[in-house]
Amino acid sequence: MTRGRFGAWAAAGLGAVYFLLPLIATFEFSLRMRRGQYSFDAYAAVFASGGFQASFLYSTGLALATIVVAAALVVPTAYFVRLRLPHLAGVVEFITLLPLVIPAIVLVFGYIRLYGSSSFLPLTSTSLGADALLMFGYVGLGLPYMYRSVDTALQAIDARTLTEAAESQGAGSLRILFQVILPNIRSGVLSGAFLTFAIVIGEFTFASLLDRPAFGPYLQRIGASRAYEPAALAVIAFALTWACLGLIQLVGGAPQASTRR
């Protein structure tokens, strides 16, 4: 048995080296901007740059809009499918898995063709339309996670009994959804929201091809033109991802993996 335990320690040790070294290296690199000594100059340069502030603000706003729209689409759907339209469960599950099957670059290609300037609904010709298109794309990217979180939460609260209790008090469907169901599945909605935020905040493919001034394309431009700022930005992005996933555990959701990049 000792041989097996040695193997387990070896695997864990190698894993720790592989996963920690890039983090240490990136942090160390981000401190090298000032010649001859470590400093936080790279971080200062990043935070002071207008490009960082503008693109980060834009992506944060877009992520929040994405979360609101995703929740507004998913919560009623998951609720009604579970309680009143169970025969739709298969179709809805298939749809929620589509974003994991269709590569983002393929989907955005379809958007550009279908909603391009010469199409019947030229969303890309106005800046607001393109923002909306990007947001709907992000709703799609987050859909598998939002749906799973909300559906799991619905399963846990016995939505049927709650609904019947509220109906017996004379509440209508809309009121039940907002005042009875939503507060009870808050942790599921929040889990989906934080994961959506983590996916959307630095997304590159959609934002770049739709020409939006988002954080992802900004990151890519900095990577192509600067030496030390990219490392600082990678450390910031890692901390952000960690914060989002940490918040999910804090609100009581299970950690999940996103499988599309």
């Binding site: 070294l21 890039p22 983090l23 290296a25 990136t26 160390e28 690199f29 981000s30 994961l195 983590a198 996916i199 630095g202 997304e203 590159f204 992802g216 990151l219 890519q220 990577g223 990219p230 490392a231 930005l233 990678a234 992005a237 890692f238 991802t241 989002c244 996933l245 993996a257 996103s258 990049r261």
Partner: peptide
């Protein structure tokens, strides 16, 4: 979930 552009930066620095 740590992928995309920042991951590329991390491995450049490594």
């Amino acid at each position: 979930n740590f992928a995309g552009v920042p991951l590329a930066f991390a491995f450049m620095a490594t």
